[in-house]
Amino acid sequence: MLKKIFLSVGLCGILLLLPAFGFAEGFGVEVKNAEFVLHGDSYVLSADMDYRLSDRAKDALQNGVPLYWDMHIKALQHRDYFWDKTLVSAVIRYRIQYHALLNMYRVRNEGSGAVSNFSTLSAALDSMSTLRNYRVMDKADYVPGESYAVGIKVTLDRDALPLPLRPVAYTNPQWYLSSDWTLWPLTK
């Protein structure tokens, strides 16, 4: 039923770059699957990500350092003669922080201001790892015949880390947690 309404599109991850070697070490963010479908008048994006923190990142979090995550979403229109035109570029920013008094992990959506508390880290990370029905573009924006692509990427905002940690974060692979762009071509 849903499939009849939702026009499913091919899910095909195109990795622009190999993921940072963090993955080989067992940490980093990975976009596991994503779905870009027409929902009503809009194309919406649903995605699942997997946050795996490195030991240093966990350590920092445990010691009260807030981590800021940016989920970048973009839609591109392919142009043969020029570089691709960016139709949509959005960022959803999360903050995760440990509260020692309550022994809880607090996740805050910086955009909406929504706060949720979790007694375990994995629960907190899970809350950030699902994206459901994010409206990317209107159906009207879609011009048949043109080729489009949608991408998602999650980055750790290293510049939001406490200052002393930044030089380390830029040099230590333990802090290379961001995912790469995962792009899907949107075809009818």
Partner: peptide, 24 residues
């Protein structure tokens, strides 16, 4: 409680960042 927590977290953070602080 908030104030204590804030101070504690701050201290904890600074302690954690001690080496990074020196480094930077």
């Amino acid at each position: 409680a908030d104030s204590v927590e804030f101070a504690f977290v701050r201290y904890q953070e600074m302690n954690f960042l001690r080496d990074s602080l020196k480094l930077s």
